[in-house]
């Protein structure tokens, strides 16, 4: 087990290093000195000395591989450089913007999970058209453009029905529509996987055995299907993290919330490479950490994974 853990950890670190390299290649290496063109812009009002200082700070004079190692070293020590636009350390921008996004994302994920479970339960226990409805919802949810959904929710709930105030809302009120907007597209793949898994497990011979023992449908669903359908749903949940973050960026833009979304928007608009690079690398770190956690959690749910191939036959 510990060897497996070490192996898995090494693999994760490799992926992280590669993710950093991709981000570096896309953002820093290829456009060459594009970063410095920004600084030479007279509106920024930087003196020649300051520019020279920045050049050194960025290591922009050095050959590419030195820049690479330099940036990598900085990232490892938690030093993400300076935002060109705001002129403050990227680390500070991140510290300010991550908490609201984290709150939005986790609330949305919670709502999405509830929604997915609701759809899955309806797809099994509902009657007639309810079952069909529950099954046709996920593809529909996937196909909805997030930004459009947000706008439509504002239109319906704020403008038409006046249920949620958009002008000077309470902090909790402010979050209702964004959380809903973000939860819908996230719930779809979760519900899809859950429904598909439940269907598959229900066709397994051990379910027939359970029913031959005299178990009712509800007993079978609860005692047999749930545990077996969970592992791959959990894996899916881990994979959805990227979607969640991307969705948060769009949602924050639509609702004008502060957070990573706004920060990303500004960074792209201003070619603020250092900020975007930090966001990309950090989200890769989060993604890898989540999938690692999921991997370590799976053996607890499925004893077949607890023993590595060694003795299994």
């Amino acid at each position: 087990m510990s060897r497996h853990l070490a192996q898995r950890l090494g693999q994760s670190l490799l992926v992280l290093l590669a993710a950093f390299t991709v981000a570096f290649a896309l953002l820093q290496a290829l456009p060459g000195d594009a970063v410095l063109i920004k600084f030479l812009d007279s509106t920024m009002g930087l003196t020649a000395d300051q520019i020279a200082e920045l050049r050194i700070a960025y290591g922009a004079d050095a050959p590419l591989w030195q820049q690479y190692l330099h940036t990598l070293g900085n990232f490892l020590s938690g030093e993400f450089g300076y935002s060109i636009r705001a002129g403050v350390p990227v680390a500070r921008l991140l510290a300010e913007n991550i908490p609201p996004t984290l709150l939005l994302a986790s609330l949305a994920f919670g709502v999405a999970s509830l929604l997915a479970i609701l759809l899955a339960v309806l797809s099994q226990l509902g009657f007639g058209w309810v079952r069909g409805f529950a099954r046709s919802m996920p593809p529909f949810f996937v196909a909805v453009p997030v930004f459009w959904l947000g706008i439509m929710l504002i239109q319906v709930f704020s403008f038409q029905l006046g249920l949620v105030s958009v002008i000077a809302p309470e902090p909790w009120e402010e979050l209702i529509l964004p959380v809903l907007t973000l939860a819908v597209p996230i719930s779809a793949p979760l519900a899809q996987v859950l429904i598909r898994n439940i269907d598959t497990v229900l066709n397994e011979p051990f379910v027939a055995v359970a029913r031959a023992k005299g178990a009712t449908h509800a007993w079978v669903l609860w005692r047999h299907v749930a545990r077996n359908a969970l592992p791959s749903t959990l894996t899916m949940a881990g994979v959805l993290f990227g979607e969640l973050l991307g969705g948060a960026v769009v949602t924050e833009t639509v609702f004008g919330l502060s957070g990573l979304g706004g920060l990303t928007q500004q960074a792209v608009a201003n070619q603020d490479v250092a900020v975007l690079q930090a966001i990309v690398v950090l989200s890769a770190v989060a993604f890898v950490a989540i999938s690692l956690a999921v991997d370590l959690l799976l053996p607890l749910l499925d004893p077949r994974l607890a023993v590595r191939p060694a003795g299994a036959a």
Partner: peptide
């Protein structure tokens, strides 16, 4: 496969934004 893992580790919107910056 490691390359694929890497590309999947970066949220798709951020990845396409990075390409767009480039």
């Amino acid at each position: 496969m490691r390359l694929v893992d890497t590309l999947l580790a970066i949220p798709s919107l951020l990845l396409s934004l990075s390409v767009i910056i480039l």
